[in-house]
Simulated assay, not measured.
Amino acid sequence: MFILNGITISSILFFISLLGMFLNQKNILIMLMSLEMIFLAVSFNLIYSSIYLDDINGQIFALFILTVAAAESSIGLAILVIYYRIRNTITVELMHLMKG
């Protein structure tokens, strides 16, 4: 019964974050937060499955996912701050104007 509750919570969190990605395509900050929630939902799913199967591999993969998610969010927020300083807005429509 424990695995059913964990996977249910994980899938609800995953679909809410997918909904956030698709409904808020104008604000890059909300898109980054939704992406982090997707990583969190996948990590929850791996941890719950790991506990249910009595195997440590899911927990190790969840740790790697959270490490990559932290690095991705810090780089994304740094790019976002620099973009805001240049354009004074964080809308996605003007992102194609960035050249590097």
Rank of each mutant, 00 (worst) to 15 (best):
I30R: 12
I30A: 10
M31R: 13
M31E: 10
L32T: 11
L32E: 09
M33A: 14
M33K: 09
M33G: 09
M33I: 14
S34F: 08
S34Q: 07
L35K: 04
L35I: 10
E36K: 10
M37L: 15
M37R: 05
M37H: 06
I38D: 03
I38L: 15
F39I: 05
F39A: 07
L40Q: 07
L40I: 14
A41H: 04
A41Q: 03
V42H: 06
V42L: 14
V42Q: 04
V42D: 03
S43K: 01
S43M: 10
S43R: 02
S43F: 01
S43P: 08
S43C: 12
F44N: 07
F44D: 03
F44G: 06
F44T: 05
F44E: 04
F44W: 11
L46M: 14
L46H: 01
L46V: 08
L46Q: 03
L46S: 04
I47R: 03
I47P: 01
I47T: 05
I47Q: 01
I47L: 10
I47H: 02
Y48Q: 06
S49N: 15
S49P: 06
S49E: 10
S49C: 14
S49M: 15
S49Y: 11
S50M: 11
S50V: 08
I51G: 01
L53R: 09
D54S: 14
D55Q: 11
D55L: 13
D55A: 12
D55S: 13
I56C: 08
I56M: 12
N57M: 14
N57A: 15
G58Q: 01
G58I: 02
G58H: 00
Q59S: 15
Q59D: 09
Q59F: 08
I60A: 07
I60L: 09
I60E: 06
I60Y: 02
F61E: 03
A62E: 00
A62N: 00
A62C: 05
A62M: 02
L63S: 11
F64C: 13
I65H: 00
I65P: 00
T67Y: 10
T67V: 15
V68I: 15
V68Q: 08
A69P: 01
A70Y: 10
A70K: 07
A70E: 07
A71H: 05
A71Y: 03
S73P: 03
S74I: 07
S74V: 13
S74L: 11
I75M: 07
I75P: 01
I75H: 02
G76F: 03
G76V: 07
A78P: 00
A78W: 04
A78V: 05
A78Y: 05
I79H: 02
I79D: 01
I79M: 08
L80A: 04
L80W: 01
L80M: 04
V81Q: 06
V81R: 06
V81L: 08
I82H: 13
Y83L: 08
Y83W: 11
Y84K: 13
Y84A: 12
R85T: 07
R85L: 10
R85K: 12
R87F: 15
R87T: 12
R87V: 11
